[in-house]
Design a protein around this nucleic acid. Structure first.
Lengths: 336, 336
DNA sequence: ATGAAAGCGCTAACAT
DNA sequence: ATGTTAGCGCTTTCAT
């Protein structure tokens, strides 16, 4: 019905000024007379003017968009991270393109290429084992990147101390008397797996025990509830002595573990105790309230974006074990 | 260390061809000799060339990006929707910018402006009551939009039949003998609320009962677990006869409702039955497995994106009630 | 304080 | 099949 997109030229024409003045109203309003500014703004409103971000970016060379690649947007843990990023970005009038790598290097590579083409101001990524190689391209393009939920001496990053998290979880289980613990971990080359495993081993050694006796590790490729369930089933069917406690790499995997335990009529935590990771919002509401290691994801995201925007030194956050019925010595009380 | 972004000009220079040929390699590879194509592609690789999306879009006038605004990215229900969209978009080499309105009209307006500036190919949005007014601007700009999880005679949309969902949930509760049912709903002007309420009323009337006797409605502004918990507490403290069943607008609200019931020592479902909505992945694993109305979100997202890309007629999907312990006549077995 | 004009990287129409 | 060129909408000198 009415015209399509109006350009600065159209606005200038209608307001009876030059395009330069229109641009000034947009970018340096203080350098324009009150009167002409009013004229121009009126023309803009009348034409339903929206500045063209492509042209702006092409000319100015800088983008107001930041790319974010997380492992799995379906996991509330990562959306909470994204929320923190968004909070920080909005304060500087930037926006975020959210991508989900689904733990697939090819998907990640595709998004990285896409973001490079978009000319984003920077990329924030929760890395998998091979991510670092792919980030070289970006750096050569002059696009900075920040690793999240992971740390590296060779790359800027914001992270949570997973060694500490693993140590806290296993220490807790040892205190409850457990001596056969199963760690249902992620891929062996994933930093979260490696660090939490290290923390677990440290905790066991600190008690004068031999990790080889106490800890059994099974590595998952995907971190879904079904994978967790299958992994536990395999271990229980292996004929080896069953574990008395399970430490899961995240709460969703823990969900699957608990499902399998229930299926076999095993009591949680009397027969097998369970500790998860991430402390998702429903952890306390599960059939057996789940002990879990809580991480400050929102702050982490905020810090990551802040790092990108202002180059503040990065921070390492501290996780905190939340103990609930799934891992306490006695059977859990019906409610609380 | 090495050069920054290489342009088509740089590639042309290195390959010893013209920029037009480079563009052809990019956009019409079949119109280029095998040999020159190889030369050009080699030059691209050598220069780490990434085409500049801004310039491309500025010139071509069309974007390969679609804006998606959901109510709440923190809710897995919406990320599942986003996943469906992404699936469809990827097939046509498009990408998605994901925004969370957080049920805040100002945030939504801001994102809409942003997306318009980006010149996105279209916008997919899960609308709140006032969204439609805001979409007029976009239309005048020639940017199509699709409503998701909602329907409108005045706007293209893909949706789920919420009337049917409400009817299924309430019919189920009536069959269990409930005659005092509380509907913990969203905002009164939200379509999901209105349609599910209509379905509820239809179900009650179909049994020859008076909705005014059977159904009590409380409207929430925000749909968090805490809000659900508070709402139920208020109702139970009101002095009026307590409901024997609760129908919650979504599973997260249901989580809060169940929390409050447990806190008061009320048994689910013996004292109060609960039915949620969305059937989030953990619904079956809760302290009391939650009956819930499942919606095909992934397909919905797929359909929405398909509608935008190919203008296929839109579809109305059918929800399905999943019955679990939280609403079955007998007490649930004391699992844990 | 405002105007004129160049140019960002790309595509597409036209010329060869 | 390949080269030449105009121009998308904006910002930003440089003049006035």
């Amino acid at each position: 019905m009415t015209a399509q997109r109006a350009s600065v030229k159209d606005v200038a024409l209608l307001a009876g000024v030059s395009v330069g003045t229109v641009s000034n109203v947009l970018n340096r309003p203080e350098s324009v007379t009150e009167k002409t500014r009013a004229k121009v703004e009126h023309a803009m409103a009348q034409l339903n003017f929206h500045r063209n971000a492509s042209a702006r970016q092409l000319r100015a060379g800088v983008s107001r968009t930041v790319g974010v690649i997380v492992m799995d947007v379906g996991n509330p843990y990562y959306t909470e991270l994204a929320r923190g990023i968004e909070d920080r970005l909005a304060a500087d009038d930037h926006t975020l393109i959210l991508c989900s790598s689904d733990d697939d290097p090819r998907r990640e590579a595709r998004f990285l290429r896409l973001l490079a083409e978009q000319g984003v101001r920077g990329v924030l990524v929760t890395p998998m084992a091979t991510t670092l190689e792919r980030l070289g391209d970006l750096r050569r393009l002059g696009i900075p990147s920040v690793l999240m939920d992971s740390s590296s001496r060779h790359h800027t990053s914001v992270g949570v101390d997973h060694v500490s998290g693993g140590r806290q979880a296993i220490t807790h289980l040892l205190r409850q008397g457990h001596r056969r613990i199963l760690f249902v971990a992620g891929p062996a080359d994933l930093q979260q797996t490696r660090h939490r495993l290290r923390g677990a081993i440290e905790a066991i050694q600190a008690d004068g025990l031999d990790p080889a006796d106490v800890l059994q590790v099974v590595n998952l490729t995907n971190l879904t509830a079904n994978d967790g369930q299958r992994a536990l089933a395999t271990v229980l069917d292996s004929g080896r002595p069953a574990p008395t406690a399970v430490f899961a790499i995240n709460d969703i995997v823990a969900l699957g573990v608990m499902r399998e335990l229930r299926l076999r009529g095993l009591s949680i935590p009397r027969d097998v105790a369970v500790v998860g990771y991430d402390d998702l919002y429903f952890a306390a509401e599960l059939m057996t309230p789940l002990s879990s290691v809580r991480q400050p994801m929102r702050q982490l995201g905020w810090a990551a974006a802040d790092l990108l925007l202002t180059d503040h030194p990065h921070s390492l956050f501290e996780p905190e074990l939340i103990v609930r019925a799934s891992s306490t010595g006695t059977d859990d009380p019906p409610t609380r």
